Amino acid sequence: MTRYFVGIGSNEKAVQNCAAMIRAVCSTFQSVCVSSVVRTPACGVDAPNYLNAVVSFEASLSLSELHRWCKALEKQLGRTRNRKGVCEADLDILEPGQVSEAFFQPLILQVQAFLEGTVSTVNLETVALQLDEQMRVGDAPCYFSQN
């Protein structure tokens, strides 16, 4: 089993799409840790703000299999790549310590700390998402485990 970190983001129907991405990860993989969900500005383009988070889980998939799964989910959620700065769904496999997006770095650290039983905060605006009647994410890191 390999521990993966996946960054998620959306700025088109962001609440709906981020919730759908997190639900899909939680229903596909076991023992999922979800960072805070944060609002970040679109960089370099005139576009709506993004919602971003990091999910982490262990899986027996290869890196290429996980990449295909992520791209299939993006497509399922309506991802088109011809609209500059607008993104329905973005899932990127992240390598801790080698992440270029500044907003993902504290989210990865937050997830790592949470998994180790310690606390790490983020200094970005957090957004709460209600995934269903029992699952809420966003305010702080959380953990979901399938029985």
Results as ranks from 00 to 15, higher is better:
M1F: 09
T2Q: 08
R3A: 07
R3P: 06
Y4M: 11
K13G: 13
K13C: 13
A14L: 09
A14Q: 14
Q16T: 10
C18R: 06
A19N: 09
M21H: 15
I22F: 14
A24L: 09
A24P: 11
A24Y: 14
S27R: 15
S27V: 07
F29I: 01
Q30F: 06
Q30N: 15
S31Y: 05
V34L: 08
V34D: 09
S35R: 02
V37W: 05
T40P: 11
C43P: 01
C43L: 07
V45C: 13
L51C: 11
N52R: 15
N52Q: 14
V55R: 00
F57V: 02
F57M: 09
E58A: 12
S60Q: 03
S60D: 12
S60Y: 00
S60C: 06
L61P: 03
S62M: 01
L66F: 07
W69N: 11
L73C: 13
E74L: 09
E74T: 11
K75D: 13
G78D: 04
G78W: 04
G78E: 03
G78T: 05
T80N: 12
N82K: 08
R83E: 08
G85I: 01
G85Y: 04
V86N: 04
C87W: 09
C87E: 11
E88R: 15
A89E: 12
L91H: 08
L91S: 12
I93G: 05
L94N: 03
P96T: 09
P96H: 08
P96G: 09
Q105E: 11
L109A: 05
G117P: 01
T118V: 08
T118F: 01
S120E: 04
T121P: 01
V122E: 10
N123V: 01
V127H: 08
Q130W: 04
Q130F: 06
L131Y: 12
D132G: 11
E133L: 06
Q134V: 08
M135C: 12
V137C: 08
G138S: 00
P141K: 04
P141A: 15
F144M: 12
Q146H: 13
N147V: 02
